[in-house]
Design a protein around this nucleic acid. Structure first.
Lengths: 331, 331
DNA sequence: TTGAAAGCGATACCAC
DNA sequence: GTGGTATCGCTTTCAA
């Protein structure tokens, strides 16, 4: 391993000088700088971030904590975060929490132990004390809490939009699927939908579910049509569940959207590839990731921030599982 | 920040002793150890990984380099890697390369600068010199190269299985979709399929594509049926493309699998949720991730390794886009 | 069994 | 402008 010492020797200067040109601060003679640059490229030197981090007590690392990268909604977020972070020279330490306090705890600890400069977390436990030990900036993503800056989409409005879409399109016996109780965004969209449904002239019922996995989704779908065989409109807790329901409805010989309309939530990439293409509430996941990273970086740089809570808009994407939707596909 | 010094003071011993109990090596009196443990928990101390890493010249970090976490095949891999790594106390530094040499280069550099103990990479450029500067273990995942240990699925066999499935099920005008030329696994499965198709009594044609994104997939699907309107069997380059083709075929009023059969590749989670559920070649992505991590960790620990190339089996998953497939769904 | 001290690779203060 | 050196928090000889 080539160190700053080697470079100093090669260039015939002191390490202090090398450090100065590296960090571009302090006075360095033009010719000296030149010599150092040459030595650096000759030796193919690149500074040891660990040593740097130890002295400065901060790294160029950002901790990213997600519930489960395997859930198709999160890779988008992660990618947004990474792209923005990379632009600013930051790298990512990644963790999956499975929404488990213990894992969150452990990852926060690792982040701290590795001197990360900031953390972005999609957590429901922001106020459980897990994040208290952090003396560095924390940005909540896809989740909120009064206590920390956050970037999220307007879940309540999303729920309303979904419900409205179905009501306006004539669904009369709506089934509203309620996501896992401990997942906040799921509850918000649920509340939003409930609000609209409660005020509308429709029958509706609620089906509670407690997970988001692909396999479980199939189960909910079967249960739904067993318990509510005459439902003609379904508000799914997310696109995975929406697609599973679509699938099950088709399997049962129902016509979509004539017999039953379905609206999902998230607009994951594969929703437009579903058959029929799934009408859904779009959350701008990639942008959310980018915004979260942007906000975090501002915080890290102690730049002034105008808004500590960034709410991104959601939109109803009218595909082919709702009536009167456009039958052209957009991406 | 509480350091080893604080603990030493609190326990009334030297930092050397604290270090010994921390690392559980060297002689430490039982009572002394006790005092230290108490001090540690009283002060809620946890060692600074950065300092540790600096001295030992190795961290507890593993670098993971993926083409694009947004491609549904990779999150599975990533999760497998993470789960296995976490079991052994390692954390992940994550990077997306977009199959670009420059990004790969940059991430490798970051990994090195941060003293990672090993790297897992899904790259096509293992032999381009990018990985030469690594003096630490490298495991290739989902890709191979003679030069480095690797964990991958049998792509050639996968291609054969896909082609055989279609031939055996009576497809007569097969379209074989060729993935991006620079993506090795895509080429292998292509070759495998070609091998079988060439030997069989069928007409077939090849459609070349150069990307894997959702949006592009729709384009290929349209092109396919425009150029080969009478195709009755499609071997897709992956499940994304397969699902897009399914979708397009349905849109054109074709019956699946009566008019056209489709077989995908990967068996991403959403394939079983497609409509109809997509027949495909399953790659054990999660296991591949775990195996890659296992192998890497053995390498890191300098444990004896029996096999430096781990080939995982692929399997044809007979769902409903091929004739005579089971019409029950498995997950 | 324990402690003192050197050193890991960089930064930044203080002299000169 | 440039160099010497203390320092970051920890591990590991080497002595005692």
């Amino acid at each position: 391993m080539v160190t700053i010492k080697d470079v100093a020797k090669e260039a015939g200067v002191s390490v202090a000088t090398v450090s100065r040109v590296l960090n571009d601060n302090g006075y360095v003679g033009a010719d000296t700088r030149e010599k150092v640059m040459e030595a650096i490229s000759k030796l193919n030197y690149s500074p040891n971030e660990v040593a740097r981090s130890l002295y400065k007590r901060e790294s160029r690392l950002i901790g990213l904590l997600l519930p489960d990268i395997t859930n198709p909604f999160f890779p988008q977020l992660a990618r947004g975060v990474e792209d923005e972070a990379a632009r600013e020279g930051f790298r990512l330490l990644l963790g999956n929490s499975d929404e488990k306090a213990k894992k969150e705890q452990e990852y926060i600890q690792t982040f701290l132990q590795n001197n990360v400069v900031g953390v972005i977390s999609a957590t429901n436990r922001a106020d459980d004390g897990i994040y208290e030990p952090l003396s560095i900036p924390l940005v909540l993503m896809d989740r909120t809490s009064g206590a920390y800056p956050s970037v999220y989409a307007d879940g309540r409005e999303g729920g309303r939009l979904a419900a409205k879409a179905l009501v306006e399109r004539g669904a009369k016996k709506i089934t509203l699927i309620k996501g896992p109780a401990h997942v906040k965004p799921a509850m918000e969209r649920f509340q939003g939908a409930l609000e609209v449904l409660g005020a509308a002239e429709v029958d509706f019922s609620v089906l509670s579910t407690d997970s988001y996995t692909f396999d479980a989704a199939k189960g909910w779908a079967e249960e739904l049509f067993r318990v509510h065989p005459d439902t003609d409109g379904v508000i799914a807790s997310n696109d995975i569940v929406g697609i599973a329901i679509l699938h099950e409805a088709l399997r049962l010989g129902k016509r979509i959207p004539a017999d039953v309309q379905v609206v999902g939530y998230d607009d994951i990439p594969q929703s437009s590839l579903a058959y029929p293409p799934l009408s859904t509430i779009r959350q701008p996941a990639y942008d959310m990731g980018r915004e979260a990273a942007k906000l975090l970086i501002r915080l890290i740089k102690k730049q002034s921030i105008t808004e500590t809570a960034v709410e991104l808009p959601v939109a109803f994407i009218d595909r082919q599982t709702t009536r009167g939707g456009t039958h052209d596909e957009e991406s």
